[in-house]
Design a protein around this nucleic acid. Sequence first.
DNA 1: GTATTTAATAGTAATAATTATCAAAAAGGA
DNA 2: TCCTTTTTGATAATTATTACTATTAAATAC
Lengths: 132, 132
Amino acid sequence: MRITNQREIILEELRKLKTHPTADELYDVVKKRLPRISIATIYRNLERLSEEGMIHKLEYGGRQKRFDGDMRPHCHVFCVKCGRVSDVETKNDVNIMDMVLDSKGFKIFEGGVQFEGLCPLCQKGDDCETLQ
Amino acid sequence: MRITNQREIILEELRKLKTHPTADELYDVVKKRLPRISIATIYRNLERLSEEGMIHKLEYGGRQKRFDGDMRPHCHVFCVKCGRVSDVETKNDVNIMDMVLDSKGFKIFEGGVQFEGLCPLCQKGDDCETLQ
DNA sequence: GTATTTAATAGTAATAATTATCAAAAAGGA
DNA sequence: TCCTTTTTGATAATTATTACTATTAAATAC
């Protein structure tokens, strides 16, 4: 995987954000540093970086995928109304993988806990701008 | 929510399936009993039934949503290659909700464990027909 | 350092899944 | 049965994502 300017800046900006942005949200951020970058480059690199295990691709709650540059193990909660995602701090004493009794022939690599709820804005009844 | 023939049969057929079908997979099944049904009716009812808490909408792994008529609490594993979903039998001694220490202002309703892996067919290297 | 090879990019067209629209049909009372 | 409201079928529109292609830039060989 070649180190291009675009790839470096995409990764750098994603790591700065704690918001688990969608591709187009990250596009808006990266465009400030690389005004000529294409949205296709954002998509391609996010896909590639997640294949390489450098970022996480989050696929729950809503139609758009979200991405997370924080590779430390942690859980997420997503808002069922607006699709926003946040980190959740959890007790660390459960090994999820040990919970499996029968995986019906699947070979399991990873297990994770995720939560559903309402974000602070949607609780207040505000129309979250990031509607899924 | 009115009880229509279409709605009843969609629910009935979904409950019969253990495959966690996508909307179009369920469409093919339901069409055998209701040849004139529209794909939009499938989408509308699956969305509606999940809003009403009668079925589960599964949004991980791939672009298509999947649906599950089995409302007993249980975990899923999805194949990272083909997107197939299967139930996973797990130890029942962990209360996921108790794990939360800080939810960053989100009000959490539900928590679940999900696993990623490879389905039996993709392990063999076969081209799964249900490619995501 | 320059040439060569190969991967990555920008810009845009195409695709796929889902949702919106709307006239007609059916459900569930009154 | 009649009336109101919901749902349906058919299809258009939308939205997120991926594919395509000529051009540009990285990495490597010379």
